[in-house]
Write a protein that binds this DNA or RNA. Sequence first.
DNA 1: TTGAAAATATTGAATATTCAAGAATTGAAG
DNA 2: CTTCAATTCTTGAATATTCAATATTTTCAA
Lengths: 147, 147
Amino acid sequence: MAKPPKENSPITEHLAYLLAQANREINRQLELRLSKEGVPVEQWRILKVLSDGDGHSMGELADAVLLNHPTLTKMIDRMVSDALVYRVQDPNDRRKVLMFISDRGKVLCKKLNSLAVDQEEHILESYGDKSTSELKRLLESLIDSSN
Amino acid sequence: MAKPPKENSPITEHLAYLLAQANREINRQLELRLSKEGVPVEQWRILKVLSDGDGHSMGELADAVLLNHPTLTKMIDRMVSDALVYRVQDPNDRRKVLMFISDRGKVLCKKLNSLAVDQEEHILESYGDKSTSELKRLLESLIDSSN
DNA sequence: TTGAAAATATTGAATATTCAAGAATTGAAG
DNA sequence: CTTCAATTCTTGAATATTCAATATTTTCAA
């Protein structure tokens, strides 16, 4: 009954692979819904973070939305063009730029939120309430233990 | 004790976000280890899938390693240049290309496997045996329920 | 106070990914 | 058989991401 050595285990048994697969699938579903408004998932994340109304620096935002700095800068450029967000120089530290959500951005964010809620409800239905909350708990704790 | 409406819940509570975050972190760690051999995670996956010695078509491979077709084609081009894998036209269906791992590829794959095992062991240590297997179980079942 | 090092954001070139179209082969209906 | 649709893979152009370098501002030690 000895376990086979890990080296020969199929890729589908690795945690890294299972996470990638699950992430890909859930992200694909979310993308599909958000595409109704023509918005990529990352932009929804940005809007959601900014919708607390506070100003967030680019560095803060990049961390929060899982994008690296140059990618975020360019995505924000597009969102500024679309008048969803705007830049303000931080008066306390002029190296920083504070990002804010516009009224237009808030309206869009509301629509996106309800599309995202649709998805979460769909997951709850097919996957179950209990499994979902247990999975969330485990993921949070994995993320914690990785820092 | 009513739950707050989901629409206002922070992004960090969404399953899609937790998955993205966990995936990013674990992938980053794995990347770091594999970079010792100068190999991206996707190439390790490809080698691992091919290391059963059977021929796998590009379509099959693309599914297995979570890459879309054109991206896979270009990555395989690089790996062929590096003599890690090779193409053979499928004799039974000449539309298909069967991919095989080379001896050089097998040698590299072994080294990569042990780097990957290192990581899994590191996760087991900091995150725990029980949590890890429970998380894997839940991820598998989420993936199942999404098809 | 000054000057060097650190922090923050952006830019541009190099690289990678994606989308849409194309080429080759097979399947299958008429 | 022949032809037309479907399947499989690759290519090229458009797009996006990343890396390294730059500009600006702040911090802090001498």
